[in-house]
């Protein structure tokens, strides 16, 4: 079953064409990567999936809703089923960490405050933060902590669909690997479908099931790592077939990193 499907997406700003006929399908339960050069329109693509931006033409379907014909009520319901980790966190600066994480729960449900506190503490723990940070404000957090709090906020309502825009950028390598592990664990336990924009080679080679490569305004390759590596394209040549990647990830003597499946 496909969770997100995009058909013939065209995005243009005036004369400038960003996407020219994008087609992609994201299946339930997979960790799907979107890869491409800076300026290829990866973030725009996600913004179109989450109804922040209307594509110039084309059809998008998310969790069974067609975004071209969706009603206001359906859109509000859909918005409770996904979680989004923005590239720079986008925490509400006037709310403290606990309020940031709990905001969707306290707005959309009648959960008692005592339980909300417990849920917040658990989510904080899950993303590797101590409950002590709960009363801090976003301005008092470091970059990595902001990312983690933002992830905790995205996870607050147990979303069916999680969008992560460069989740590991700005984290230290150890923290980034923990983050990867957490993402896989969450996917396995909660049946989340995860859409992830990343340049992190470790993430690409270890956690991503399938991905698509955005270049020349189109999806030039889509599929598993193996399938993508078999495709001929200058970006793929440059990104994957250099000495660094070949030496470190592809021809490694130790057991090859394979995508973690259930």
């Amino acid at each position: 079953m496909s969770v997100v499907s995009m058909r013939n997406i065209v995005t243009s700003f005036g004369e400038k064409v960003i996407h020219d006929g994008i087609n992609l399908t994201i299946e339930a339960g997979e960790i799907y990567g979107i890869l491409g050069e800076s300026g290829a329109g990866k973030t725009l693509l996600i913004q179109e999936m989450i109804m922040l931006l209307q594509p110039t033409s084309g059809e998008i379907e998310v969790l069974g809703y067609n975004l071209n014909t969706i009603t206001y009520q359906e859109a509000q319901a859909l918005r409770q089923k996904w979680g989004i980790l923005f590239q720079f966190g986008a925490l509400y600066s006037s709310l403290n960490v606990a309020q940031n994480i709990a905001i969707a729960i306290s707005e959309y449900t009648q959960t008692p405050q005592k339980l909300i506190n417990q849920i917040v503490a658990t989510k904080l723990n899950m993303v590797g933060l101590s409950p002590d940070v709960a009363s801090l404000y976003p301005a008092q957090l470091s970059g990595g902590m902001i990312k983690r709090v933002a992830l905790a906020r995205a996870l607050a309502m147990d979303p069916k669909l999680l969008f992560l825009d460069e989740p590991t950028s700005g984290l230290d390598p150890i923290g980034a690997r923990d983050f990867d592990k957490l993402i896989v664990e969450l996917r396995n336990l909660l049946d989340i479908t995860i859409v992830i924009i990343t340049h992190d080679l470790d993430s690409i080679f270890s956690i991503i099931d399938r991905f698509s490569i955005l270049a020349d305004k189109k999806v030039v390759a889509q599929g598993t790592l193996k399938e993508v590596l078999a495709t001929q394209h200058p970006f793929i040549e440059r990104f994957f077939k250099n000495d660094y990647v070949l030496g470190r990830y592809v021809h490694k003597d130790s057991p090859k990193p394979t995508p973690h499946h259930l």
Binding site: N96, M126, P131, S135, E185
Partner: peptide, 19 residues
């Protein structure tokens, strides 16, 4: 069971205090 274990792991000191 797995969900419970995951949450058990992360709920040890599971109260937050807002000062």
């Amino acid at each position: 069971k797995r969900m419970y274990k995951l949450l058990e792991l992360h709920s040890k000191n599971s109260t937050i205090t807002i000062k």
